[in-house]
Simulated assay, not measured.
Amino acid sequence: MSTSTTLNIIFISSNKNKVREVKSILADNLPIQIIPYEVDLLEFQSEDPDDITRAKCIEALRIISSDTNWIATNLNPKTSHLYSSSLNQCQNTQVTSTNPSTTLIMIEDTALNFDAWGGSLPGPYIKWFIKSIGPHGLFNTLQAFPDKSATAVCTFAIYTKFMPETTIKLSTIIQCMTRGVIVEPRGDNGFGWDPCFEPDSGPNMNIPLNDARRLTFAQMPSSQKNSISHRSKALLNLRNYLIKKYFSK
């Protein structure tokens, strides 16, 4: 694909904050159009983010395929060619692909894992924890535990097919992480659990825990958060993949 051609990415999300972050990182100075498709997908039960992301993609493909009015308004299905490939750039997996498409479908899943809870919970259920108890409640759940360490995990999957008669195969999956600690909420920026997540990297690197100089995601400007967050790491890996795949010829 030449740089004069636009790569359309349908991003399945009802979270406008995530859409904004995706646009600012993935489409920066590239002919990429992020097309949000707002739908609340079923919450699939698994502790494996890869399994959840795959299941979400299958569900999203089913919904989009039946939404003929939306397709007619936003896409030309005849331009959507199919291919299969695999990728996990965070783990340096070899990439193979054929028949590149100009229309992709993208799913994101976020997990937050507490070391004190075995390293896998709340995990992918963090969305419902935040909706139910908020950042202050999340912080309070760890008050009985001396270890407040946590890992933020972001998983992206991209598919290039939304035709219901074809077998759904994974095209691209990327997963990246950011280590940090859960603290009493501070800051007005960001969204979700940003106010109670204090990353160990970026401006907090080499600053001891419980030091007032440490910042939560919600205390950082978006540009600073986007330089170290789990989502930005995954998006930058995905961006590099897209450049090599679609814009380097």
Rank of each mutant, 00 (worst) to 15 (best):
A72W: 00
S85W: 02
A72L: 00
N69W: 02
T96N: 12
C90H: 07
C90D: 12
Q89W: 05
S84N: 06
N88V: 01
S84F: 08
N74H: 13
N92T: 03
I71N: 01
A72E: 13
T79F: 12
V95N: 14
W70S: 09
T68Q: 14
H81V: 04
L87K: 01
T98I: 04
Q94D: 08
T93P: 01
N92A: 06
S80N: 15
S86C: 04
T93V: 11
Q91P: 01
K78G: 08
L87A: 09
T68L: 15
W70K: 00
L75E: 01
H81M: 06
K78N: 14
H81R: 09
T73S: 15
Q89L: 09
I71H: 00
L82S: 13
T98K: 13
N74C: 11
T93K: 03
S86Q: 10
V95I: 10
K78C: 10
L82Q: 13
T93S: 09
C90G: 09
Q91R: 08
T79L: 15
W70A: 02
S80D: 07
S84W: 03
Y83R: 02
Q91M: 03
T98F: 08
Q89F: 06
A72H: 03
A72M: 01
S84G: 04
K78A: 15
Q91E: 09
S80H: 09
N88E: 09
A72R: 00
V95A: 12
A72V: 00
V95L: 12
S86D: 13
N88D: 10
Q91T: 03
T68V: 15
L82V: 12
S85I: 01
